[in-house]
Amino acid sequence: MDLNIRYMIDTFFLALTGVPVTLSITAVALLVSAPIAFFMAISRIYNIRIVKQVVSAYVSFIRGTPVVLQILIIYSLLPSWLNAMIKSLSWDINIFDMNPVIYAYIVFSLNTCAGLSEIFRSALLTVNKGQLEAALSIGMSAVQAYTRIIIPQAMVSALPNICNLTINLIKGTSLAFMMTVKEVTSIAKIAASYGYNYIESYLDILIIYILLCSVIQALFALVEKRIGSYKTLTGSAAKAV
């Protein structure tokens, strides 16, 4: 089996130009879904009627269906919806000129909401109820208790799961090519179709994903060490870190 090394190197750098798009989908999905997921988690922990049922059904559906189906459903649904909306608002935008990355933002945000809310829920539940009581007993408000005491502690147990979710999200964005988004996979795929250099292209993609995921994992490891220090270190040692 001969690999066309020259082609592989060229395509590698070509595919690298898709990294910003891949990362932007990941970042937007995480940032958009974080606050929503938090309130979804809270609604389930505190058994808020109706909201809780809706959230549970939503999480179950997203968890129960493949991302590729979610993409296909949204992609066959959203353009015509958006078109109808834009027409009714009589804006002067042609929906079909819009950058398809918008669809990727929407699909992956919807998907991430569900996963993140599950992570937040179980992380919040790991914090002992006494922590909340102690905070209230010294006169903090519920919001203060959450932002200063509960969430920082919950983050420690949530981080490894958030890392996993991020890795899976990055891997999942490789499916955005189905929506003609120009990210890493689609760029290399298109390059491959000119000269049938499929294996070279896919190996390039693989290397890029390995690099991306390794960097993400290293970053998370760093953060984990930082915010988890209270579990293992005494104060003087913690200051030195």
């Binding site: 209230l136 007993s137 104060g235």
Partner: peptide, 20 residues
């Protein structure tokens, strides 16, 4: 709550904060 204070059976110190 601001005029009372509570000492718990299992302390409930904030795990993510130093003693101070």
């Amino acid at each position: 709550r601001k005029r009372t204070a509570f000492v718990f059976q299992n302390y409930n110190l904030f795990n993510n904060k130093t003693a101070l």
